[in-house]
Deep mutational scan, measured.
Amino acid sequence: MPSETPQAEVGPTGCPHRSGPHSAKGSLEKGSPEDKEAKEPLWIRPDAPSRCTWQLGRPASESPHHHTAPAKSPKILPDILKKIGDTPMVRINKIGKKFGLKCELLAKCEFFNAGGSVKDRISLRMIEDAERDGTLKPGDTIIEPTSGNTGIGLALAAAVRGYRCIIVMPEKMSSEKVDVLRALGAEIVRTPTNARFDSPESHVGVAWRLKNEIPNSHILDQYRNASNPLAHYDTTADEILQQCDGKLDMLVASVGTGGTITGIARKLKEKCPGCRIIGVDPEGSILAEPEELNQTEQTTYEVEGIGYDFIPTVLDRTVVDKWFKSNDEEAFTFARMLIAQEGLLCGGSAGSTVAVAVKAAQELQEGQRCVVILPDSVRNYMTKFLSDRWMLQKGFLKEEDLTEKKPWWWHLRVQELGLSAPLTVLPTITCGHTIEILREKGFDQAPVVDEAGVILGMVTLGNMLSSLLAGKVQPSDQVGKVIYKQFKQIRLTDTLGRLSHILEMDHFALVV
Rank of each mutant, 00 (worst) to 15 (best):
G148V: 04
Q243N: 06
S3H: 10
K247W: 08
R45Q: 13
L101I: 04
R196N: 12
A24F: 13
I142M: 09
C244D: 00
P170Y: 02
K83Q: 13
I95D: 00
G26V: 14
G134H: 06
L251T: 04
D221F: 09
G57R: 08
P215E: 08
K247E: 08
W54Q: 06
T68A: 15
D47H: 08
G151M: 00
P46M: 01
G185W: 05
P74I: 03
K39M: 13
T260W: 04
A159W: 02
L248H: 04
Q55G: 11
K172A: 01
P2H: 13
N149W: 00
V90D: 05
E29Q: 15
A237C: 12
R45F: 05
I188K: 05
H17F: 07
I122D: 00
F111H: 01
V255L: 08
N113T: 06
L42W: 03
I122W: 00
P64M: 11
Y233R: 00
Q55I: 11
A253T: 14
S254C: 15
T68F: 14
R266T: 07
E128F: 11
N225A: 07
L42I: 12
P6D: 09
A207M: 01
R121C: 00
G134V: 07
G115R: 07
I76C: 07
I92M: 12
T135P: 03
G151Y: 00
G263N: 00
E144N: 05
A183C: 14
P138H: 08
S217P: 05
D129H: 09
C103A: 06
R125N: 08
K172T: 05
D234M: 12
A159G: 03
L42S: 02
N149Q: 02
G11L: 09
S147H: 04
N216G: 04
K39P: 11
K271E: 15
D179A: 08
S175A: 13
G85H: 11
P215N: 04
I44E: 09
A226D: 10
K102G: 01
N212W: 08
S227M: 09
S32Y: 10
S227H: 09
P215M: 07
N149H: 02
T146G: 05
S123E: 08
A207W: 00
L210T: 05
I143S: 01
C15K: 12
P192W: 02
H22S: 06
R164E: 07
K30C: 05
G256T: 00
T193E: 10
